[in-house]
Design a protein around this nucleic acid. Sequence first.
DNA 1: CTGAAAGCGCTTACAG
DNA 2: CTGAAAGCGCTTACAG
Lengths: 330, 330
Amino acid sequence: MVANKPTIKDVARQAGVSIATVSRVMAKKANTYTPQTAQRVWDAAAKLGYQKNSAAAELATRSSDKIAVIVSNPPTNFSTGILDGMQQTALAHDRHIIILYAGNHSPQLLHQAIKDATAGPRAGILLIGSEIDPQSLKMLQDSQLPVRLVSNYSYELPLQFISSDNNELAAQSVEYLIKKGHRRIGLFGIDHSHTGLQRRAGYQKAMYEHHLPIERDWIQYGDYSYEAGQTIMQHWADLKLSAVVAASDLVAMGIMRQAAQMGIKVPQDLSIVSIDGTFLCEVTDPQLTSVTQDFYQIGVNSVLDLLGNAPSELVPFKLVERGSVAERPK
Amino acid sequence: MVANKPTIKDVARQAGVSIATVSRVMAKKANTYTPQTAQRVWDAAAKLGYQKNSAAAELATRSSDKIAVIVSNPPTNFSTGILDGMQQTALAHDRHIIILYAGNHSPQLLHQAIKDATAGPRAGILLIGSEIDPQSLKMLQDSQLPVRLVSNYSYELPLQFISSDNNELAAQSVEYLIKKGHRRIGLFGIDHSHTGLQRRAGYQKAMYEHHLPIERDWIQYGDYSYEAGQTIMQHWADLKLSAVVAASDLVAMGIMRQAAQMGIKVPQDLSIVSIDGTFLCEVTDPQLTSVTQDFYQIGVNSVLDLLGNAPSELVPFKLVERGSVAERPK
DNA sequence: CTGAAAGCGCTTACAG
DNA sequence: CTGAAAGCGCTTACAG
């Protein structure tokens, strides 16, 4: 037979003070108690193994130190870096993070996650890679909580965000390829989400600025997955591309795999720059040149911005040269 | 100026009933209200956008529908499958999952995560891949909550678990290699955690049973990472192994990479079977033969076992033949 | 079937 | 500096 969890009353009795006093010292309210009473309270709490019931505290204050982060699970897997950054930063600011998993891009699971996130007091909501439909938006707004989109965004949405600049991500990939002498450049694996469209726009912008035509089918859609890369690559022969920007590391890997099977050599026959720059880029042969996003920093800034009520923010990325791009005689 | 979030009182007033009645219909207590009152309550709730405050409900019932899952982030990344399984199953049983992130194997972050997990009412605690130190154990036990270890275990710990059988994972890898004619077989990349030791024991058991000697240095330690695979592989020449079981997919990839650089051909010169069987196995060239764990099922069973108070369980895995093992003339 | 009331474990003015 | 008391938003015997 185990004892029930001790409450503030038990601590008060043990320390010989009122529950109000226990509450104050546990909350470290400055100048409201003597060092002596504090010590007695701490001793009593330690002895009983007391732990504050957060549900009760949240109810009383109608506030919370918990940030709800909703992660929509995309085929690509960069969330680890983001979550690491969030975690560290939250801890440093005495906040906690609870993660709600919204499965694979199903609106239903997203709604469920938002509902869970707003079912109790929260410090705010962070959404990683979630496609916001009208109902989600309404739920978010009804909650009256601070909200930030993380790692995706849309200027059409009345929501602030922290992300890399998708447009620039694609544009600079193309610029780099052009600088290396490529002219027939494709964009493989984007989808029709805001992220995909922003990257497409960046690709188009860079091509136009250099007066390069974009032929039909140079833009190939997919879902950022390995399989998408493979499938798209099967039509490469007709496209006569010398270079391609891959919508994600996974897409790039799929492209490489299919290329190998078709006897196409990377980078001699086909140059690739990959968007993301996760560890996967260092694991292929040759290694993948990439525009690498600073996922950790995105995570850090998302909680900073949320807590500090800062405006939307684009986090810098950088191009990392590895082995998947060949120079081409102009 | 926005209105405050509506409470049960607002709904009661709007529907013209008492808060007790609202509470009952929201909780769907059978046979405690007429369809008519129920309808009025639902209408009122919908109109006001009412949502139950879970903190208050948990306080009143001293219970919760939230399962806390603590994920310790290992270099290998199989948690997605597990979390998917947990998520689906929890939802099907009207439970919710909140994820607490315990960073990279630091005891401090684990303690923090356990503290957060037990700071409010919970349906139970699930820990994915966490190394349990004495203090963690005590905190877990003090919580008096149902607890399950997921994807790792120790018979020395008074905690129940759901996992693949680490011993068998390694043993069957070895068996398979022996059947293919290999005799000089190594084990690369395990660490000194329970998981590592269990896999080592399985490896040794299989070798002994076939009267095969294990030479010094055939067992190489690491941390399940890609880098570990690379580093270890640098000493391959001295070892004269014909086959190796890799402690994780990442280790296997590191091995392949280093092998390629050293001009060693997989599988002709070196056969590999990898433990885990994530998508990474299909992404290499040749693809990796693996003992693949059923992570999704592990996730499903972990919430089932937790809620049903079932005993510890070993979830079946299977050997998947791909391209990284060559037959060897005996 | 429904309501009044007590209680869950905290926090925080208010008084002293 | 400290305590008594009200209140946070729910749930649930208890009575009717």
